[in-house]
Design a protein around this nucleic acid. Structure first.
Lengths: 351, 351
DNA sequence: CTGAAAGCGCTAACAT
DNA sequence: ATGTTAGCGCTTTCAG
């Protein structure tokens, strides 16, 4: 058969080499490596020396195949550069590392089809969990495929984790780590209403994804709770992008209804809003108040510094890993909603 | 022996199940999967159907063990949240994905010892390459260990890639993808000198890592080339942190020599510089000019917008993967230096 | 074009 | 405390 050294003529040091050199059997080496079995001190020393001399490291694939767990966590997100995602990724990585795992990462750029493909390829890797981050598609077919995926992972002893996205339903074997999207928007809108604002534009609405939908929901509920009617013309659709905030604001200034405050769906969008306002000669917050959502680092560097909603991204990532890995331990809930809260800075003035 | 279904009573669908269901042998299934061998159309159809019905995916570990390549790229960086690193990571991920690979990610938080440990654990994973990103330790022992690591990877048919850090020497089997750190600093300092500045503070120097050392080098060389003496008191040490820029600038303002411009070692440090200047009532750029390095997104959002040195982070990451994967193809150099250039914005005024 | 057989490197049950 | 044996799921000769 194929006793080829390797794809390209290489031969790695294996456990067999170590065993031979140490003058022991292969399982003995395995035992000192695992450290979960009694081994004579003298033997252990010999083995350890052989390992050092040969500069041996285990083959993670062989180990995984032989039944020991994989020690990997799969992470799927839109991209790595957005501060929002990179902070979640950091949390995932830190917790994974703390639990002795490596992260397998793939990005989707927000494309639902690509996500499905990526997720399938993650299944091949047999990680301890597959963590999906960020806004999900609302399409039925997508939800159905994702549900099947959750079951497939479950059957394989792995776990699907939905991080920052809504549950797929009670019967789906998945861990959900959300944050209070609606509540943060409610609190922020209430804050603006309390400051006397009555015409608050919401920039970046969308009914294609859950996140903006929920944020608009909080915005609407706050109005209701204050008895202030919502002017639908003030809710303007858009993407999660700086340019989107810029264009929307410009349109609003030129053709839109009056407004005294802008609630940007994200901080990134808020930067575009700020830019458009500055171009139009409107002062913030004297003429127009502006708020964002997410509290990414740039929020504190803007002029004026941005009042926004803090989302615990790092904690989201950490919790995702923790819950997935300890799901069999008692007292480990599999659906948590982390809190959000307002961070008051300088971009809001009372009306 | 251990015909245990799996660690926790699960049984995944294997190639054998597919073969049985399709009424063919295991190798046949393998062949339709690989698609690199003639298979009768009827057979292929049967197999494909069985795969679909059973919702089968290959076991990446078994495949890796059996000799086929791993299809993974290991990535080691300080952290994922710094824009500088996350952009490189994004480039790596994109190119890796384009070449059909997943990324294995681990962070070190700039700790050299941890890096050595992480790198060792990446060796276990048998990826196609191990990409090390960002400032390296200058310690001899570290360099020696890293050199050994490069050889170990090379013996295993993998590749060490140093991304944004200096080469370990000509005999070390490693790919190096740098950017012109010194040149960017030279160009930026020349720009300030041309604008009439003669007392330029350099904030964030350090001789513990290569990056700041090279940037100071460019700063010094520009002075020499303009025949302007360098005042050592203007070169102030510090970390790559906002607070570091803030403190250094405050000390400079209180006890330091006169200066009309500040060259911050990174954009992040520049935000701290700007903050300290604002606190002290100095206007930028009217009273003091400020420049940064890296051109991370926040640079364009600061007030004033920051003149800085563009580093092609995405391209750095992409190139790292590309060179490592295609190192055996002719015309693929294994040491490239990507260019840097000044991005002029609003934070510099002529003197 | 397909199947039988061997083996990748490791771990875990079974004997000592 | 250690060695023997079997087998994880897959790919790859080698026969036919």
């Amino acid at each position: 058969m194929a006793r080829r050294p390797s794809a390209d003529g290489r031969r790695r040091t294996t456990i067999k080499d170590v065993a031979t050199r140490a003058g022991v059997s292969v399982p003995t080496v395995s035992r000192v490596l695992a450290g979960n079995y009694p081994v004579a001190t003298a033997t252990r020393t010999k083995v350890l020396r052989a390992i050092r001399e040969l500069d041996y490291v285990v083959n993670a694939h062989a180990r995984a195949l032989a039944g020991a767990t994989t020690k990997t966590i799969a992470l799927v997100l839109h991209d790595i550069i957005s501060p929002f995602f990179s902070h979640i990724a950091q949390g995932v990585e830190e917790q994974a590392a703390a639990e002795g795992r490596v992260c397998l990462v793939r990005t989707t750029h927000g494309d639902a089809d690509r996500e499905l493909a990526v997720v399938e390829m993650m299944r091949e890797q047999h990680g301890d969990a597959v963590i999906l981050v960020g806004g999900a598609s609302q399409r039925d077919e997508y939800r159905e495929r994702m549900t099947r995926f959750a079951h497939a992972l479950d059957d394989a002893g792995s776990r699907l984790v939905l991080c920052g996205r809504p549950s797929l339903g009670p019967d789906v074997p998945a861990t959900v780590v959300e944050y209070d999207n609606e509540g943060g928007a409610f609190a922020m809108t209430s804050y603006l209403l309390s400051a006397g604002h009555r015409r608050i534009a919401f920039v970046g609405a969308s009914d294609m994804a859950s996140t903006p939908t929920e944020r608009v929901g909080g915005y609407v509920r706050a109005h209701e709770s204050f008895g202030v009617p919502v002017d639908p013309a003030l809710i303007v659709p858009g993407e999660f992008a700086r340019s989107s905030g810029h264009h929307a604001t410009r349109r609003l200034l030129e053709h839109g209804p009056e407004f005294t405050a802008v609630f940007a769906v994200t901080d990134i969008v808020a930067t575009g809003v700020l830019h458009a306002l500055r171009e139009a000669g409107r002062r913030v917050p004297e003429d127009v108040s502006v708020v964002g959502y997410d509290d990414i680092p740039v929020a504190a560097e803007l002029t004026p510094t941005l009042t926004t909603v803090r989302v615990p991204q790092l904690e989201l990532g950490r919790t995702a890993v923790r819950l997935a890995l300890h799901r069999h331990e008692p007292g480990t809930g599999q659906h948590v909603v982390l809190g959000t809260h307002i961070v008051v800075r300088d971009s809001v003035a009372p009306r």
